[in-house]
Nucleic acid binder design. Structure first.
Lengths: 263, 263
DNA sequence: CACGCATACTCGTATAGACGAGTGGGCAAG
DNA sequence: CTTGCCCACTCGTCTATACGAGTATGCGTG
């Protein structure tokens, strides 16, 4: 037996409206969340309570929840309830994050930054191997057939937030420390410069889309969370592309920030 | 009476799997799409056909479709069927799009670019008015109370792709052509420079998220399409923020591209 | 007091059926 | 031949029911 909902929390249905019932319910819940009647992390009324409150069937209520889930507003926990999804702290990526001065410290940018923010950083799923270049990577690197691929996943306080793969032409990377699991202080960009590939500029392409099922697993994404897909190409002083880095980020964990000259 | 599906197109269910039936069906459809068995714009088997093929109830099939819809892979058309969602052509935004040289032409960047790409550009929903600054805008502009807001929506070949609002401090914009519906050749940045606010650099913040219901309406977004939220602040030579532009873009219509120096 | 189990409550999955509404093709009437 | 209607097929919405599985709480046993 569910106790009645606090009156006034949620309104009634409008039977004359041509808006579907489950949409009306979703609208009311969304508005209640927006107005702060339910706070971040707080539990929404259970399906059974809403069934009783609105006098509809359970599937209708679930339908409403699935709308809000698709919007990334709420998430359901089996056995517990449906909760307002808390917005995780976001990591800000500044456009100068690859500046040479940051590289001269020794530790990786990710670690340094996370430590500074007081969170616990972690890097795992390291895989370093030679493989056939995809069509796209090959084009970006200038028609190479095989590449060195470096895959890794980044976590903050135990939560996976980013999955990245770097691709480098074999004639540059093979036999160097870049082909080792640990590329040493300053990361592969420091190594590239030591090898005489003076970095000139980067190009970053940004897309946003819904994640594939694989990405949902790897990044443990809640439903309704898109990913930011970033492809960075590094060019040396001769204008040659020396690295392509393909990164998929949990969109709710990141803000990208760029400085552009107004020349 | 539905004719049987072509055999081999879709597999069978695995009753021993602990993967839910509707997920298995979604998996098979997704794989078939990925492999090109169903092409862009092509119609998937109808709900009734899948009900018969898999021997499940209709709600189970609909559940599968709703997964794929959430992933942005398919879209349903009432009375017609469920179709593989075609990927619209993407508009590429280069990081030099606000370079002074582009401004000196006269026409707006959006129009020029679209014309060049052979598509039909359009700008509507113009609204120009003074209003109270939101907390966020006020902070970015340096504690201003009221601002001039310029709202507009951009369309490509009839499809809305972007919705933007520019905010300017009143002491800069009031009484100038910036406060007019048509800001004149080169846009408001050209006017700002004429008014002595020599632009020095821009800062852009990028987020990705699922759209609000309002944004779905304004941009006529299909389900499963995120938005890119870009907030650009323009700074003049004195380091003062002279404009904040808040832009929401249909993520399936854009690729953002940035050039970063490796200094 | 500590442990374990029963129980009630939560959401997850699935079935079966009903009616409504949008679309398009075919057929019959003009 | 053209027009207009009917019908079959499509997805949209909603009900009612059933069982399974994860979670938390409290109570009884040791």
């Amino acid at each position: 037996m569910s106790p009645a909902l606090p009156s006034g929390l949620l309104g009634d249905l409008d039977p004359t409206s041509d808006r579907a019932v489950f949409r009306q319910i979703a609208d009311q819940l969304r508005e209640a969340i927006d107005r702060g009647r339910f706070r971040e992390g707080e539990k929404l009324p259970s399906e059974a309570e809403l069934v009783e409150h609105y006098g509809v069937s359970r599937m209708t209520v679930r339908n409403s929840f699935s709308i809000l889930q698709g919007e990334g507003l709420v998430h359901a926990e089996h056995g517990k309830g449906v909760f307002v999804r808390p917005r995780p702290p976001v990591r800000r990526l500044a456009s100068d994050r690859f500046a040479r001065r940051h590289r001269e410290q020794g530790k990786s940018a990710f670690i340094v930054e996370a430590d500074a923010a007081g969170s616990h950083p972690q890097v795992d799923s390291l895989e370093v191997k030679e493989e056939k270049a995809s069509q796209d990577v090959s084009t970006r690197l200038g028609s190479v057939r095989r590449v060195l691929a470096r895959r890794r996943r980044y976590l903050l306080d135990g939560r996976p937030v980013e999955f990245a793969t770097s691709y480098l032409p074999l004639d540059i990377a093979r036999g160097t420390q870049i082909a080792e699991p640990n590329p040493g202080p300053g990361g592969i960009y420091a190594r590239l410069e030591e090898l005489g590939h003076h970095l000139d500029h980067f190009e970053e392409e940004i897309r946003a889309r819904m994640p594939s099922p694989d990405e949902v697993k790897t990044l443990r994404l809640a439903s309704g969370v898109p990913v930011i897909h970033l492809i960075r190409t590094a060019f040396d002083a001769e204008g040659r592309a020396v690295e392509v880095c393909d990164t998929v980020m949990a969109a709710d964990a990141y803000v990208l920030s760029y400085q552009l000259p107004a020349t």
